[in-house]
Amino acid sequence: MNRKTVLIALSAVLLSSTAIAGPDPIETRQQLMKDTRDAAKVIGGMLKKQKAFDASAAMDAFKVWQKTASKAGDLFPEGSDVGHDTEARATIWSDRAGFDKKMVDFSAAVDAAIVAKPDSLEALNAAAGPVFKTCKGCHEGYRVEKE
């Protein structure tokens, strides 16, 4: 093996490791889930009649969900199953196709809610309900319940 080949191989290894060492996926997805819950709080507060219906605040919350839906799927790489007190369950990796399907369901429900553009509490209930169902759908089989 000549020296050039070694040099190229070494730099390839270095480059790829810097690419991997971006922000920690577990911390990133935990923050994303907190944002998602805060958005759910906005919508839920209205549905629970603790806050007045506000169409634009609801739309902002849907947009937060849309961001989650676009990013979350990539934040569960192999090997990100331990650390930071993660609640990710091993089923995410043992049944990746099932998990990915749940993400697709979530994304589709959020997109439909945005298109529906609810202008009343009843419409909000109808638009958010299917999204909430997908939250449960994924947390049922892919999150560890830790209290």
Binding site: R37, D38, A40, K41, G44, L47, K48, F132, C135, K136, G137, H139, E140, R143, V144, E145
Partner: peptide, 23 residues
């Protein structure tokens, strides 16, 4: 009551695990 009806905790975390079917 709201949790049992909707699956949401007061903090708007959502029910998960085997409690989903129960809820």
């Amino acid at each position: 009551e709201y949790y049992l009806a909707s699956g949401f905790t007061p903090d708007f975390d959502v029910v998960g695990g085997s409690m989903v079917k129960v809820q």
